[in-house]
Design a protein around this nucleic acid. Structure first.
Lengths: 348, 348
DNA sequence: TTGAAAGCGCTAACAC
DNA sequence: GTGTTAGCGCTTTCAA
């Protein structure tokens, strides 16, 4: 069915909805109706239009659609420019959830240390055009509230007060709960106290784990040893481990992520302190490698997908039905994975 | 409906370029000129316009701009929905390169196993509006050429014939070279031959490593043992390791990524075969943990950033100056990182 | 150097 | 059910 003369309205190449309309013998508006699955189109017309669209290889022009409707049907994510398991997994979860909600995804990474990081990223997204924004793994560097945000914002893992207006959040209590479980596990094993190898405290993720550890110790009236700081990397875990190994009172350590835990174990072992016989170590994340390092790592599993999905549910709701309230789902259950890096303290 | 002193043209809330124009006392077109850094605007007018824009908190409307200009200034990435170190690192590299080129980034993940995966993802991106497409970590599932692509495509790590039209590629030879270096290292140590724990062969990444291994063996006239297949996961490496451990002729293994290598080491060790004394193992990627597992892992480092940057240079060029040819840069140098998992074969 | 007019390709509001 | 008429907020073209 090749049309004799120009099927396209212009020489432009790609077909427009008018072209589809002409071929189907209907008005342009009807094409729009069909393509948007609007009601009040007879099945027969719908068929014709779809066939015509298919034949021409027609594709909706998103720019025009956005301009006319004021809606972009896309969601922007402010992410961290890192391949760390946590942030990367979260991003993948977000992508899936966004796609399931039939939105497009725009991504802007923040450069750590750049003060205007999140603010600038949000600005960029707003300029590109998004109906909502996700701030994944927020880092607190001060003045985020300064951005003028005219769309709903979802903050993952931090209270929504983190940003100014119309914000929702998900997964806020999760990390703290997991950290408490991790610490509790060590105490249950009989350790007098638990040391903490913390993540950077500008990260909410770092703070939450620290707080969970504190809470767990406080709940049992245990003393709280000095915190050792790391930067999420195995290297920093290793460095911290050299210090901790020298302190014979250390019998249990909760590391804020698995990478640091693995570096820590390495340092302890090199220093002649056996894991778990002399020192027990718990990680955080349950990276796929955790089961295969030696000793295999006891850790807690982060529910990235659940958090991303729940967050997106709230965000999409805030975008599409701003006035109706929605009850947030309950936090997903805590998963502690006990492996070989933890044991009861050896009797001395 | 217009408020008497209204700064905004409508009650809409967000200011338009007309509003800026009015405030600055110039035409709307002049505002456009200033904001696009076009020439032929007096410094004085430029100042006034910028001040007015700032005062109103004006932000360009991307949709309108796209519609009018036909350019989207965004690039779409087809990525894998995985937090695996390789793909995730590559994605981060792409994001950085895209941002540096002053494009926006749209991301669509493919679901592994979904036959229409890449094709569908490309379609989605085209519909959303992109000036170019990056296919990161391509998987060969057949009919990709079937998509009608009217924009330039960049394929990372696979020849550009992988897709139909106007395609460029980067990092094609890299993986093979690295694999050859990894295998060569083991042969240099004196091993008679090297076994290969391969990645899935639908992945170009998997094939390239296999080929590099083959080439290295062939170059020295060594026999080529049967390949063991894995799926990139430590679990699959572990499973493969149980088999390999049972074969006393195995003295050296090249694993297609570090995760599998670590699983492999674990299985070997459990079976009583010491690494590196009895069996040497080389990985691929140089994940941050590689230096901290025990034994620390000898591996080759993937130049994700270099590949992403070079690829984007080519892509942006193809978008902006389609007719001018560009010479691709040389592949980045091979980096072999020798650690404790490899040694000369023990004399028997 | 600046401005006026004419679209870009679609959706919205309303007629028929 | 279907069509008509206006724009959405920019860039482009052309005139001044």
């Amino acid at each position: 069915m090749t049309t004799p003369v120009a099927a396209q309205s212009k020489g432009s190449g790609t077909p427009r909805s008018v072209d589809v309309a002409r071929l189907a013998g209907v008005s342009q508006k009807t094409v729009s109706r069909v393509l948007n699955n609007e009601p009040y189109v007879s099945a027969e017309v719908r068929q014709r239009v779809l066939a015509a669209a298919e034949e021409l290889g027609y594709r909706l022009n998103n720019a025009a659609r956005m301009l006319a409707s004021g809606r972009t049907r896309s969601i922007g994510v402010v992410s961290l420019g890192t391949a760390l398991f946590g942030p990367a997994s979260l991003l993948m979860g977000i992508e899936r959830a966004v796609r399931d909600a039939e939105y497009a995804l725009r991504v802007v990474n923040t450069v750590e240390g750049d003060a205007s990081g999140i603010t600038g990223a949000v600005d960029t997204l707003l300029e590109q055009g998004v109906d909502g924004i996700v701030i994944s793994e927020p880092i607190d560097e001060g003045h985020v509230a300064a951005v003028r945000v005219e769309v709903p914002v979802l903050v993952l893992g931090a209270p929504s007060e983190f940003v100014a207006s119309r914000a929702v959040s998900a997964g806020v209590g999760v990390a703290e709960q997991l950290a408490r479980a991790a610490t509790g596990h060590l105490l249950d094993l009989g350790h007098q106290t638990v040391h903490h190898l913390a993540g950077p405290q500008q990260w909410y993720a770092g703070r939450d784990r620290l707080r969970g550890w504190q809470t767990a110790l406080a709940a049992r009236g245990r003393q709280q040893p000095a915190v050792v700081m790391g930067d999420w990397s195995a290297a920093s875990g290793y460095a911290a481990g050299r210090g901790l190994a020298a302190d014979p009172s250390v019998t249990a350590v909760f590391a804020a992520n698995d990478d640091m835990a693995i570096g820590l174990v390495r340092a302890l072992t090199e220093a002649g302190r056996r894991v778990p016989e002399d020192v027990s170590v718990v990680g955080f994340d349950d990276i796929p490698l955790a089961a295969y390092v030696t000793p295999s790592l006891t850790t807690v599993r982060q529910p990235f997908d659940a958090v991303a999905r729940e967050g997106l549910r709230l965000l999409v709701h805030a975008i599409e039905k701003p006035d109706v309230d929605l009850t947030p789902a309950n936090d997903p259950p805590v998963e502690l994975v006990v492996r070989d890096s933890t044991a009861a303290p050896s009797s001395r």
